[in-house]
Design a protein around this nucleic acid. Sequence first.
DNA 1: TATAAACATGTATATATTGACATGTATATA
DNA 2: TATATACATGTCAATATATACATGTTTATA
Lengths: 183, 183
Amino acid sequence: MRTLKYAILGLINREAMTGYDLSKVFNKDLVNFWYANHSQIYPELKKLTAEGLITYEIVLQGEKLEKKLYSITDIGQQDLFAWLATIDPLEPTPKDIFRLKAFFMESLPAQTILDHFESQLSQRLEKVAKLENTMSTQACNLKKSSKISPEFCDYLVLKGAIMREKTYISWLKECIAEIGESS
Amino acid sequence: MRTLKYAILGLINREAMTGYDLSKVFNKDLVNFWYANHSQIYPELKKLTAEGLITYEIVLQGEKLEKKLYSITDIGQQDLFAWLATIDPLEPTPKDIFRLKAFFMESLPAQTILDHFESQLSQRLEKVAKLENTMSTQACNLKKSSKISPEFCDYLVLKGAIMREKTYISWLKECIAEIGESS
DNA sequence: TATAAACATGTATATATTGACATGTATATA
DNA sequence: TATATACATGTCAATATATACATGTTTATA
């Protein structure tokens, strides 16, 4: 479905960027719903350039270091907007290795099962703490923008990520409680 | 990471199955956290057989139709249990095309944005209704098994799936409300 | 008894993704 | 000024996944 294509177009549409910049954004701002390695990004940039959806100019960093600053073309923008406007059917539920393991865990000793859930719980607690920290640091710039803006979208998806993590945590706690009762 | 391998081993460990059976189970019981097409399953079964982790016997269905009934070997079970016992670091957050689109949506007219969220909301409401129906139909067999059992695991992951969907729905509703305020 | 739906098993091709390999520059700091 | 870290761009090989192609049997039902 070329989702990476649109993720890149969407970012470059916001602001001209290098492949390196894209890589950073994917693994920071977008990491809660999309990500990609640089080994995927650079070939895709090449492809999008060949397709005429983006162009680049070479910018010098220091004396010698050349970086490619990509911007979106008119065709690229049309393509992006057409994709954005399309309403999709529901995606398949995301895969989740922990849930898969949990599904089969019954063959393990009760204490090992609890260890799994406790480990997952502490990792998720740490993660949600980081997300909430981001939210409180950025909340001023984000929510107060009372019009629909990039910052407003940042805020909405960050809120969604926090809600998702908190629910995962609630589930883990309920599982731990029920396993305690059952064993 | 060969997750499909362990998904298959886990299922065959519960009960001997054909590739066709596995395909059905993936797209019914496991669909809320794992799935695979038959075009992935059959080659993997071949590979696992070659690796000595499973074996099959040919069973006749009617007069001519041969099906392969797979069972797990001792080595397969050891491999499965070793995987089950391993505690993993947190997986990267699952990708989500709708959230990605939402992140870039700000360039669209407010009404189109709302249409996206409303469509997603009604699709998710339908989905959670189905999940809750499954839960109420199967709840008797599931929860009442007061010991840790396959049915108990089924119950736990189904509950998790319902919680996840409900949170997605809450997020969508909050987004719709906030977009209403902002536009 | 014709027919559709479900059962049953594969392969082929294209795309997506990961992790390793490979190279070199610029900048901050010890 | 040595050194580590971040900046910057690529390729390659292996794995994973999706979609289409391909074939044949059995069972329920109209």
